[in-house]
Amino acid sequence: MAISEKDIAYIAELSELELTSEEAVQYAGSLNSIIDYMAQLQELDTSGVEPTTHVLQLQNVFREDVVKPGLSREEALRNAPNRTKTSFKVPKIL
């Protein structure tokens, strides 16, 4: 399945990225080569292999339900590019 420049424009829009038309061509090329590479896997017979849910052979990593203090509000807001006294500040979005 080849990725067209139209697909790239759509993905860019969903990702809130602005791409020039040169960049769209370039990304279409790189994404297609990745997909071609991955397509080699399709040649393997995977019937009878349980689908992978995670690349690590780990399961059930949990924490107990215990409360610990997090950041103070000052610390939490420190790196915000735009803030009020108590909150982050973002453009309103409808």
Binding site: R63, V66, V67, K68, G70, L71, S72, R73, A76, L77, T86, S87, F88
Partner: peptide, 19 residues
């Protein structure tokens, strides 16, 4: 491990993970 308790002052039940 941030608390789920209702009604804290804005942005006081936060940590690097949930932010």
């Amino acid at each position: 491990p941030c608390p789920t308790e209702f009604g804290g002052e804005p942005n006081t039940h936060v940590c690097p993970v949930c932010l």
